[in-house]
Write a protein that binds this DNA or RNA. Sequence first.
DNA 1: CTTCTATATTGATAATCATCTATAAGTATT
DNA 2: AATACTTATAGATGATTATCAATATAGAAG
Lengths: 315, 315
Amino acid sequence: MKLRHLTFRLLEVYVAVIRSGSLSEAARRLHLTQPTISLQLKRLSEAVGEPLIEFRQGHLFMTAAGEALFSACQDMLGRFEELQEQLQGLQEGRSGHFSIALVNTAQYILPRLLGPFSQAFPEVEVTVEIGNRAQMMERFQRQQDDIYIFSHPPSLEHALAARFLRNPLVVIAPAQHPLAQAKKLPLSALQQERFLLREPGSATRMLFDSWLQTHGMTLQRSIQMASNEAIRVGVAAGMGIAVISQHALPAGNQHLVELDLDTPPSESYWHFIVRREHRLAYSARNFLHFVDRHLEEHLDARYVCHDLHELLNSV
Amino acid sequence: MKLRHLTFRLLEVYVAVIRSGSLSEAARRLHLTQPTISLQLKRLSEAVGEPLIEFRQGHLFMTAAGEALFSACQDMLGRFEELQEQLQGLQEGRSGHFSIALVNTAQYILPRLLGPFSQAFPEVEVTVEIGNRAQMMERFQRQQDDIYIFSHPPSLEHALAARFLRNPLVVIAPAQHPLAQAKKLPLSALQQERFLLREPGSATRMLFDSWLQTHGMTLQRSIQMASNEAIRVGVAAGMGIAVISQHALPAGNQHLVELDLDTPPSESYWHFIVRREHRLAYSARNFLHFVDRHLEEHLDARYVCHDLHELLNSV
DNA sequence: CTTCTATATTGATAATCATCTATAAGTATT
DNA sequence: AATACTTATAGATGATTATCAATATAGAAG
């Protein structure tokens, strides 16, 4: 038995013949002529090296070899269909895997999108990479992930970016802070405060620095901390005040207050970023589509932006 | 994904590539050139409609689609090998099915051959048809079975016959019969006995009748019974005497004696018979081979004939 | 015995394929 | 940069295939 030239088509023909119990009927079903079926069958039989069917009393019967083949055909074609199903799932993004890399602060947002997505598409596996901006930039350079989330997108030469959420910054202070209840504070009022800062290079820090600069201020005292958590806890404990993303601020924290400034820190936007040349995994694409459809549903509608459409069209 | 022209060969190539992790290496293993592999892979990828592999850091990786395909390939090729194994089993007669039809008396012999055969080839299914000569002749005419066992083979025009065992006939009487101990009895001494006979048409009856005829005898009294069992029991119970195949006579029956005649009934032979045109099932052929090899082992060596060889050569 | 229907065969054609050699182009290791 | 791998592409060839229309043949039904 030489498998070499056995084609799935041939097996399909055979199965059709057996199922319909007649060559002509099979021909009709497959939209072929009867001689074609006859020939195919002959070829198949030659490949197997045994007669497969025989006619007795005008009816078609399988030989033992024919039955073995038929059973094998069903199994193999069944597995083949399963494969097709699987591939289709991949192409429609219903299954598969993608990875998404985000800077620390974004981890307060992404789960609200990823959670519902995973429920809707349980077959999709997602790897989430989290780190500071420098680390994520490195991953971006190396093209290690399908999707990135930055608030300040890197050079758009090799990437496409789409805003999806405003990223308002707020100044937080401990609840007992003397200025806690003040209104329309001038920035200068904070000159003497001790600031808890994210590391240089982080988006929040970059925004903060430029905010200071536009107001011609320099800090007297500051402490650098690598995580929003640490800063939040630090502020609550009275170590100082800080500027952080509003999203990193859980609602109803009794130990913290937002200071009301006359010129609040300028805000930025969260972006989805994909590499231009890296063909987006179907599942990743599907995720972005999902996000585009359900942004308002899962995130604060006041801050939502709808730029994803364009990105999805050009990928 | 168009399955039409997907050939098993192509899947084999793909599996070889993945297993070896390199096109060139796969080419070497399959005794092909590298460009061939490259092209095949391209074709396969086109058929699937997705890239299957990609190279990163000089190493080959599968895409998600590639992995799905690979897994499917393994399954399908595995099933294919199983089929090949099955077909080979059929061709060697190690598996499959055949039917053997025999007249009643042969059922005392066949199990001794069929038992060991079934042990040696547990995968072979055998259907045993048993009936009187008329019934078996009808089956023979209709070509319903692979092998027949007759003591008088039917017309050899459409069949081949091979003797494999002598079929000696004996005259049995109840143990208390007045002639039980007599030596060299003339046939005429039995003239007045009541004979228990098999039905006309049965081989035993035919032999018996011709035996009588050659001695110019006619029976005074007889009773017809359709089975050897019934006759044996009948004789033991004193209903009369009978001529039966020695094989139908269990050794050491206290209630029966064999009469010692000066001219014993002529004996016949058991034959295997196969139809000339009907291609013998591999398993049936294998059975005959088995029998040919193990005749002495399982049957009384004194009665064995070795004609099977010729039959097997000409089928 | 004829008629129908089903299968087998023949002959032809265009497409596809497997496979080769030769060559280009891309990487990784000196 | 050079070398020694790799993979990719091009062009050629002979084999194989799928497919058809037309026709022959066999088996069943009337």
